Computed example of a mutant assay.
Amino acid sequence: MPTGVALRDPRRQLFAAAERVLLRAGPNALTSRAVTDEAGCAKGVLHRHFADFDDFLAALVLDRVARLDGQATALRAAADTGRGTVVGNLADALTDLFESVAVAVVGLVVSRDGLRARLRRTRPTGVPLLTDAADMLAAYLTAERDRGRLGPDADIPTLAPTLVGAAHLLFADRESAPPAPAEVRKVIAAVVAPVLTPVARDDFPV
C-alpha cells in the first residue's frame, strides 16, 4: 500500500517542512523521517530528489541564501533613491532576515559537521547566510557611501559583518518575544553613528 501523498513541488514542500521542524523543535530534531512526516509523504520522496540527507540540508541552506536576492535588490533601490534612512533601512533588512527561519538555519549549519563539510565544497570560507547577509549589507553601505549618506572613510568591510553579528546576537537563542524595533535600531545606530554624514544624522538623530 502506498504511503504519504504526492507532492506537487517536492523540493519546495520538503524545504518548507524542514523549516517548520527547525522552528518548532530545533536542529537536533531535523531528520529525514521528521521532514517527510511533516510534509506528509513517503521517506523515499526525499531520497529521489537528493543524494542523501546532508545533500538535502545543503540545498535547504542554499535556498535560504538565494532568498536574500530580493532583499538585496530592495536595499539597493533604497540607496539609489534615497528612500528611508540608513539606520531604518538596515534595521528593516536585518529584522526581515533574523525574524525568519534564518537564525535556526545558522544553528543547523553550526551543529552538523556533515552539512558544513558538504557546504565547504563550494563555499570554503564563512558561515553561509551570515556571510551572504554581510555581503548584502556591504553592497548597500557602499551605495550609501557613494550617495553621500556615509562618510568617504567608512570602513565597510568591518561595518557589514559587525552589523550582522550584532543583529544575530539580538535575535538568537530567545525564548521570549523578538527584540523591539527600537532596540534593533538603537544597536544599529550605535554601530553606524561614527560614519553617518550630517544629512543622514538629520534623518535619524544618534
Rank of each mutant, 00 (worst) to 15 (best):
T3A: 10
T3N: 09
A6E: 14
R8G: 03
R11H: 13
R11E: 15
Q13C: 01
Q13P: 01
L14N: 03
A17L: 06
A17H: 03
A25S: 15
P27I: 12
N28D: 15
A29M: 07
A34F: 06
T36E: 08
D37W: 01
A39I: 02
G40M: 00
C41S: 10
G44P: 00
V45S: 04
V45F: 11
L46W: 04
H47E: 00
H47C: 00
F50P: 12
F50D: 02
A51D: 15
F53W: 03
D55W: 00
R64S: 13
V65K: 13
V65Q: 14
L68Y: 07
D69P: 00
T73R: 15
A77H: 14
A77D: 12
A78I: 05
A79R: 02
V87E: 00
D96C: 08
L97M: 11
V110P: 01
G114I: 08
R116S: 09
R116Q: 14
L119E: 03
R120T: 11
R121N: 10
R121S: 09
R123E: 10
R123H: 15
P124T: 02
L129S: 07
A134G: 14
A138F: 04
A139N: 10
L141C: 07
T142R: 14
T142I: 02
A143P: 02
R145D: 04
G148V: 08
R149T: 14
T158M: 13
A160F: 09
T162Y: 04
A166C: 05
H168C: 02
D173C: 11
E175P: 10
E175N: 12
S176V: 10
A177N: 06
A180T: 08
V184P: 01
V187G: 05
A189C: 13
L196T: 01
T197S: 14
V199P: 00
A200N: 05
R201Q: 15
D203W: 01
V206L: 14
V206E: 09
